[in-house]
Design a protein around this nucleic acid. Structure first.
Length: 312
DNA sequence: AATATTGACAACCGCGGATGG
DNA sequence: CCCATCCGCGGTTGTCAATAT
């Protein structure tokens, strides 16, 4: 006897979500908030397993998510964090609050790993570190975070270590967000189409109608804090959420521990509190800061981004 | 034009931690 | 403590579109 299935497989629908299912799920969460996923399929009539509902919400329907078009700077962040943290995608995603762990993971597996491989073959930018220092060489499969990995074995981090700061919690623009975020929606150069895409307008209309009947909540624009919200200890994510156009020093990108994020808390959505469980362990933070000094040049390179893409 | 291959990413699966009775 | 349940995470698979042959 193995572990019992998370849900009754009989009658459970699998595969891509339809717009109608999305609407049902969003409507339900709008009313009840995320959480208690077990009850979601029961109460909504969705023929989906609770995990599937949670995943759909977390990765696609949740407001504040940006999809696709990773910037060179984001790539740099991911590469660096992956070298530090290994394949702890949730932790990495906590530094890029508009990105989901799944998205980052996919991007790593499909793009960055190849880029790094190619780059390492060329043997350019990343020189081997002194043997006695922690390696920050980005490598695939987490092989580059050996020292941290060792430390984590000795002093393991809690598994639920997401640091994900707030993303916008509004739902007033959820239809728009869905339209923007949908993998099938034509956005940001993504012009793929499908039956889903052809239905996006209908979803938007339906959701707009739904939202009108919903209690007012923070508007999407609210995720951009005012200038006074941008304080010196602002994390990278917060900074970008604040619409920053230039980057703070890498050390400043370190997120403050959850209690030090009052401004952020105000914008937190239902489930965002779930992501405040963990924080950097001392060793992790130390390594992060150590590595930050070495990576600043790299980050600067990518930050100029926009004109000088990172070369792997 | 038809078929095979590759790339991208959405979604699923299984494990393990957290929590409550 | 033990057990059951819920939830989140990371690895993996499935599917579809784009590209190559």
């Amino acid at each position: 006897m193995g572990r019992p299935p998370c849900c009754d497989k009989v009658g459970i629908k699998k595969g891509p979500w339809t717009p109608e299912e999305d609407i049902i799920l969003v409507s339900y969460i709008q009313e009840h908030g995320p959480g208690n996923w077990r009850s979601v399929p029961i109460n909504t009539g969705l023929m989906r397993c609770s995990k599937s509902c949670r995943l759909r919400w977390t990765n696609y329907l949740r407001p504040g998510i940006r999809r696709g078009n990773f910037t060179p700077h984001e790539e740099g962040i991911i590469v660096h964090l992956q070298s530090l943290l290994g394949n702890r995608w949730a932790a990495i995603a906590s530094y890029l609050p508009q990105r989901t762990d799944n998205d980052i993971k996919n991007y790593w597996n499909t793009h960055l790993k190849k880029k790094l491989k190619k780059h390492q073959a060329i043997g350019a930018i990343f020189a081997p570190p002194p043997p006695s220092e922690p390696s920050i060489i980005p490598t695939t499969a987490g092989a580059g975070h050996v020292d941290l990995h060792h430390d984590m074995i000795v002093n393991p981090l809690p598994k639920g270590n997401s640091l994900r700061p707030a993303s916008c919690s509004n739902t007033a623009e959820v239809s728009q967000l869905i339209a923007r975020r949908s993998p099938f929606a034509a956005t940001d150069g993504d012009s793929s189409s499908s039956s889903y895409a052809s239905s996006m307008d209908n979803i938007s209309r339906l959701l707009n109608g739904f939202m009108k009947s919903s209690p007012p909540q923070n508007d999407a624009a609210d995720i951009k804090p005012s200038a006074t919200d941008v304080n010196p200890s602002l994390s990278f994510n917060q900074y970008h959420m604040a619409g920053g156009t230039t980057l703070p020093a890498f050390n400043d990108m370190l997120p403050s521990p959850p209690p030090q994020q009052p401004a952020l808390m105000e914008h937190r959505g239902y489930d965002e509190q779930q992501h405040q469980k963990g924080a950097l362990s001392p060793i992790e933070k130390w390594l992060f800061e150590e590595a930050a000094e070495q990576v600043v040049d790299l980050m600067d390179l990518s930050d100029g981004c926009c004109s000088v893409p990172m070369m792997f």
